[in-house]
C-alpha cells in the first residue's frame, strides 16, 4: 500500500502538481473573489493532467505486473487524490487566513474564506470524488466523461451553495456573520463537510474497487 502511494508520488504525479496547491492557494489573496474557483482549479487542471499522465505512461499495465492486489491499487490511487485535495484545501485555508487579516473591512459578496466556507469546499470535493472515481474505474484509463460529470456536479454544488448564501437571509447570516453563534455554526458545517468528504471518498473507493475487478487490463 505504502509502496503504491510512493510509486505515484515518485513516478506518477509530476512534481509540479505538489507545487500547484501553493500557486492556486495564493489566488485566495484576491479580495472578495469566488473562492470556490481556487479549489475547482484542482478539478480543472490537476486531475486531467494527472490521469492523462497515468494513461500515457501505461501506469495500469505497469502496476498490474507487480505483486499488488487490485484492492490496494484502487485504495492507493484514491488516497493520492484525497491527499492532493487535502493539500489544496489546507494551503488555500492558510492563504485565506492572510486574506482575512489583509482586508479586515472588506464587504464580501461571495463567501468569505471562513471555516464554514471550507466545510462547503470539503463537500464540493466529496461530490467530485464520488462521481469521478467510480466512473473512472469502469475502464481504469478513460477519464473524459468521469471528469465531465464530476466537474459539472462540483460546479453546480458551488453555484447553488453560493446562490443560496446570497439569497437566503438565514444562510447568509451563518456564512457571512462573524459573531460567536455564527462561528459555532460554521464550525459545525466544517465538521459536517469533513465527515461527508470522508464518507463519500470511502464509498467512491468501494464502488471503484468493485468496478475495477471487472476491468481487463
Amino acid at each position: 500500500m505504502y509502496n503504491l502511494i510512493m510509486k505515484d508520488v515518485k513516478l506518477g504525479v509530476p512534481f509540479i502538481f505538489f507545487l500547484f496547491p501553493v500557486l492556486m492557494g495564493a489566488l485566495m489573496l484576491i479580495p472578495g473573489w469566488i473562492y470556490f474557483i481556487v479549489l475547482l482549479y484542482f478539478c480543472w487542471i490537476t486531475v486531467p493532467n494527472l490521469f492523462n499522465q497515468f494513461k500515457a505512461q501505461n501506469d495500469l499495465m505497469f502496476t498490474s505486473m507487480m505483486p499488488v492486489t487490485k484492492r490496494n491499487m484502487v485504495k492507493a490511487r484514491v488516497l493520492v487524490i484525497v491527499g492532493l485535495e487535502l493539500l489544496h484545501i489546507l494551503i488555500a485555508a492558510i492563504f485565506g487566513v492572510f486574506t482575512m487579516l489583509l482586508y479586515p473591512n472588506l464587504t464580501y459578496l461571495f463567501f468569505p474564506p471562513n471555516i464554514g466556507f471550507w466545510g462547503l469546499g470539503m463537500m464540493m470535493f466529496a461530490i467530485f470524488n464520488i462521481i469521478f472515481i467510480p466512473i473512472f474505474y469502469k475502464t481504469a484509463y478513460k477519464f473524459g466523461w468521469a471528469l465531465f460529470f464530476s466537474v459539472m456536479a462540483a460546479m453546480l454544488f458551488a453555484g447553488i451553495a453560493q446562490w443560496v448564501g446570497i439569497q437566503h437571509p438565514v444562510v447568509n447570516d451563518i456564512f457571512y456573520g462573524t459573531g460567536a453563534e455564527q462561528v459555532a455554526l460554521q464550525a459545525i458545517i466544517l465538521v459536517t463537510g469533513i465527515v461527508i468528504f470522508a464518507a463519500f471518498s470511502i464509498i467512491a473507493y468501494r464502488l471503484a474497487f468493485r468496478r475495477f475487478l471487472r476491468v481487463e487490463v
Partner: peptide
C-alpha cells in the same frame, strides 16, 4: 515479465524506476 514495444514512465531515469519497483 518483459514486454517488447510497451514502455512505462519513459521520461524517468532507470534509477528512479528501479527505486520504485524494488520496494515491491
Amino acid at each position: 515479465y518483459a514486454m517488447g514495444g510497451v514502455d512505462f514512465y519513459t521520461r524517468s531515469k532507470m534509477k528512479t524506476l528501479t527505486d520504485v519497483v524494488k520496494r515491491f
